[in-house]
Design a protein around this nucleic acid. Sequence first.
DNA 1: TATGAATGAGGCTTCATTCAT
DNA 2: AATGAATGAAGCCTCATTCAT
Lengths: 211, 211, 211, 211
Amino acid sequence: MARVTEEHVRSREDAIVGAALSMFARKGVAGATMQDVATAAGLSAGAIYRYFPGKEQLVEAVFERIGESDRLLFAELAEGMQSSGEALANVGRVVSSSLSSDTVRDQTILVLEWILAEARANDPAQGTRGVVEEAQLSIIETLVRRSQEAGGLDPGIDPHAFAVILLSCLVGVRVVALELTESVDMDQVFEALQDVLLRLGSVRDEVEVES
Amino acid sequence: MARVTEEHVRSREDAIVGAALSMFARKGVAGATMQDVATAAGLSAGAIYRYFPGKEQLVEAVFERIGESDRLLFAELAEGMQSSGEALANVGRVVSSSLSSDTVRDQTILVLEWILAEARANDPAQGTRGVVEEAQLSIIETLVRRSQEAGGLDPGIDPHAFAVILLSCLVGVRVVALELTESVDMDQVFEALQDVLLRLGSVRDEVEVES
Amino acid sequence: MARVTEEHVRSREDAIVGAALSMFARKGVAGATMQDVATAAGLSAGAIYRYFPGKEQLVEAVFERIGESDRLLFAELAEGMQSSGEALANVGRVVSSSLSSDTVRDQTILVLEWILAEARANDPAQGTRGVVEEAQLSIIETLVRRSQEAGGLDPGIDPHAFAVILLSCLVGVRVVALELTESVDMDQVFEALQDVLLRLGSVRDEVEVES
Amino acid sequence: MARVTEEHVRSREDAIVGAALSMFARKGVAGATMQDVATAAGLSAGAIYRYFPGKEQLVEAVFERIGESDRLLFAELAEGMQSSGEALANVGRVVSSSLSSDTVRDQTILVLEWILAEARANDPAQGTRGVVEEAQLSIIETLVRRSQEAGGLDPGIDPHAFAVILLSCLVGVRVVALELTESVDMDQVFEALQDVLLRLGSVRDEVEVES
DNA sequence: TATGAATGAGGCTTCATTCAT
DNA sequence: AATGAATGAAGCCTCATTCAT
């Protein structure tokens, strides 16, 4: 029975975190009540406290799940790093495909809540979100360097700064997409992004020839 | 005396909105109390209600001020549009300089709160933040077209999609800067952005020659 | 098997009451949860309800056990009543020795909780605690009378009032000992109490001679 | 207006503490709700939080008031110390008269709650109640010594231990009086107490002569 | 019998808002 | 116009109690 209980606890926790993620996204972390979450999870409000000591910890659990999602997303990118110099071009594709998912809107909203929460904390110690972003930055920077080595990107570009730009683009696209759903075709945008990246790569030869 | 009163009211409103902006940024819109705002504005809690019917309206006023800031920022860009094809390169410089200001962090935080608020509203009717972003997008797109016409950017690039990318970049940089203040030198990043834009421009001739 | 079960139930009840006594003393009757008690008794929360209908009845059972302890304590005194006129001097010794026991602190705390509980009830009908105290009072009064008859105590003293004083002393010492553990040596105090009682006895002859 | 406000605040605090004292006595500190207190004070529950940060602090304020009462009671005793060797006999009278007051029952109940609260805290650092009792003990001990010096009490009695006995008596009487209101005439008891004290005094000469 | 997950009532506390002064 | 005391509606959380397993 021990394992059954363990599994049960795990699955309940998952359900609660899922419900919380959904409610937090819909009403805001501050605006969603424990009752909202409980109802969404099919529980009474008090029951949540068997699994999480308080709202704060539930919020953290939600943020952790978001961080995990982000990590998985970038793990795909890291996979692509192996193959070729065109891995960079995958960045857009990967993010684009993830954006089509229906739950991604919720996740993006919560990433922003997360960033806001940490920005307010004003803690000199890097918050957890900062760590996630550093990791993503590092992956992208590696991709950029590989691209440059493989001739897919002009070596004259500062890899770190360019990685920041790319990461900002990815983050920014998700944010902007929250507002401009109607007027902007995201597939088209990612196509354009790949186009730009390709151009930045194709340049290299010409420029080298030129100089 | 009517005008004196009118001015007085205006200045009080400004003070309140300013205080609210500061407190909302520091504690979050939901986390900051009317008492917080009043104290920061040098008033008692009840006094705010002479100027704003409720917290909701105060929040809206803060968002409006944020929107105004954004509009002013992009008005500078629109100015640059007149001059030359290199106006595009200014985008980075303008945003970069704005980021050095100390209050910009607060503004960025509130932009995110604003976006979140509207994303939650899920209102089919475009919210006000959406309008601001559409306007920014439009300005950037015009800049891109001018750049292409002036030969500063490859005409093969889709102007609309590229504008979205640029806007996302600008938004994303502000967001990312909230987390990675320590590890990233923003000036360097904007330099790199300009570098990239220049490269996308310089390509043109080569590519055209090539093709 | 019926008796085995019966014994089992009895021992379980004892364990629960013991655990409850301990937790109630440590955290207060209101502050201790059924979970606390259950854990201390090595049971799950729900199991207690097989033995007691609710917390209220458990509290009553604890009080009853406390009352039983008190009764046993005074039974010793009643024993002493048989012997001689110096039985009264035993009062101090008996209570003193009981105070050295480690669990007495818990018992004293619960006696106070009990008194408080009944004082609040404000029930015109004498509560159970009152009955215990009446009994103690009666025993002490008998002791006093015997002492007077045996010449160990001045017959001029009102036996009932003096018994109240003695009982108050015993109760008061336990209460005061809760607070002044460090600064007061209780053995010394009880020695002094016996000394006083002896003096009250020795007087008799003198006074009688005198009058 | 400043002073008016100050007075207003003071009087409100007093009213709240008074209401709290009454409700805590009637229902127990744990059993009385903030709503109970507020209603008794003629306020809404939330209003209390303008004057006290929380229930805990309100409880402390009540305890402080109780402590103040106790201090005043013993200040009267300290006054009597000046006069003569019969001051000791006053102890009973003072306490007795205080017991007739209607609010004393509440105060006694809260003294017990206070003692219980500190006994539970188990803080090695002496709690505030302990300090009050030490002070009372010290006053009584001084009284005892004066009585001995003035020839009103046998010098052979250990003053400290006897002071503990007397304090215990006073405390104990209050506690016992909670339960035995009906069956015990307190005036009679205090008369007997004085009688006993007088006897302990009159002994001196005889005993000295005797020895 | 025992478990422990779940409920639901209720307590403490906060805060937007009102209003007498 | 301004104050700040007061209200009342929630929200978070605890816990005695129940019940399916």
